[in-house]
Simulated assay, not measured.
Amino acid sequence: MGNDCVGNYSVATIGDFVGRELGVSDWVVVDQARINAFAECTGDRQWIHVDEERAKRESPFGGTIAHGYLTLSLLAAMAIEIGMVPKDASAGLNYGLDKVRFMTPVKAGARVRGRVTLVSAQSKGGGRILIKAMNELQIDGEDKPALVAETLAMLVA
């Protein structure tokens, strides 16, 4: 699906998009190699993420699952792909999170995609706009999302 934020979506018109879905990203596979790389980066090598044999035997999910923070970290690239930062903004900086809920585990090999809705856009002066977006990380074939998160970004005009 890719970049859905086209047309007149810009720094000047961002207020018109509050309450609207900005788009849906392409699917991304969360395979065991990605999970293992995340474990190495963070030092979180809990067996449910990296021990495939033990996870097959003991996990209630029938195999390994992605780290919650790995799934959360995918949102930034998906929001960029969708076009949440208007093309005429000079920068879009991560400003934080207001709420995150991990709802459904992402099994190794699953496909996920992001769905982004603009919640608010507040001028902060000096050409800065604080935007809040509702992000839903959907799992292919699952009814419930992996997570929902309210993300904050500071746009610089």
Rank of each mutant, 00 (worst) to 15 (best):
P60Y: 04
P60D: 01
F61L: 03
G62A: 00
G63Y: 04
G63P: 08
G63Q: 12
I65K: 08
I65M: 08
I65D: 00
A66S: 10
Y69P: 01
Y69V: 02
L72M: 09
L72V: 02
L74Y: 14
L74I: 11
L75W: 06
A76T: 13
A77R: 13
A77T: 10
M78H: 14
A79D: 15
I82W: 10
G83F: 04
G83K: 04
M84W: 00
M84P: 00
V85W: 01
P86C: 11
P86A: 10
P86Y: 13
P86F: 15
P86I: 06
K87F: 02
K87L: 12
A89P: 11
S90A: 13
A91S: 14
A91N: 10
L93Y: 14
N94D: 12
N94W: 08
Y95L: 07
Y95R: 09
Y95H: 06
G96H: 13
G96C: 15
G96M: 07
D98F: 06
D98E: 12
R101Q: 11
F102S: 01
F102V: 01
M103A: 10
M103C: 10
M103W: 00
T104R: 14
P105N: 00
K107A: 14
A108C: 13
A110P: 03
V112C: 00
V112H: 01
V112P: 02
V112L: 03
R113N: 06
R115T: 05
V116A: 04
T117A: 06
L118Y: 12
A121N: 08
Q122T: 15
Q122A: 14
S123M: 04
S123K: 10
S123Y: 09
G127M: 13
R128P: 03
R128K: 15
I129F: 07
I129D: 00
L130W: 07
I131Q: 06
A133H: 11
M134Q: 13
N135M: 09
E136D: 07
E136A: 12
L137P: 01
Q138D: 11
I139F: 06
I139G: 01
D140G: 01
D140W: 10
D140L: 09
E142H: 08
E142Y: 11
K144A: 13
K144R: 15
P145T: 08
A146V: 04
A146E: 06
V148M: 14
V148T: 15
V148N: 11
E150V: 14
E150N: 08
E150I: 15
T151G: 10
T151V: 11
T151F: 14
T151I: 09
